[in-house]
C-alpha cells in the first residue's frame, strides 16, 4: 500500500518545484474567472505540465 502514497508524494513535490509556472497558470484562471472555457489558459497549462513532467521524469 505504500507505493501509491509515494507516487502521490512525488506528484505533489513536482508541483511544488514548478511553483512559478503553477502560479502563472493559476493567475490566468483567476483573471478569467467569469469566462472560463475549454483551453482558456492552454499556453500557461502546457508550460506548467511540461515542468512537472520534467521534474517527475515521466510523460503522460
Amino acid at each position: 500500500m505504500s507505493k501509491p502514497r509515494r507516487t502521490v508524494a512525488a506528484f505533489s513535490a513536482s508541483i511544488a518545484t514548478c511553483a512559478s509556472t503553477a502560479t502563472a497558470y493559476g493567475a490566468c484562471i483567476s483573471a478569467t474567472m467569469n469566462d472560463v472555457h475549454k483551453g482558456v489558459c492552454e499556453k500557461e497549462f502546457l508550460a506548467f505540465k511540461e515542468c512537472v513532467q520534467a521534474s517527475m521524469k515521466r510523460k503522460w
Binding site: 505533489s12 508541483i15 503553477a22 502560479t23 497558470y25 497549462f45
Partner: peptide, 11 residues
C-alpha cells in the same frame, strides 16, 4: 488534477 492543484493554491 494538476490544474486543480495550481488553481487551489493560487486562489
Amino acid at each position: 488534477m494538476l490544474a486543480a492543484a495550481a488553481i487551489y493554491k493560487e486562489m
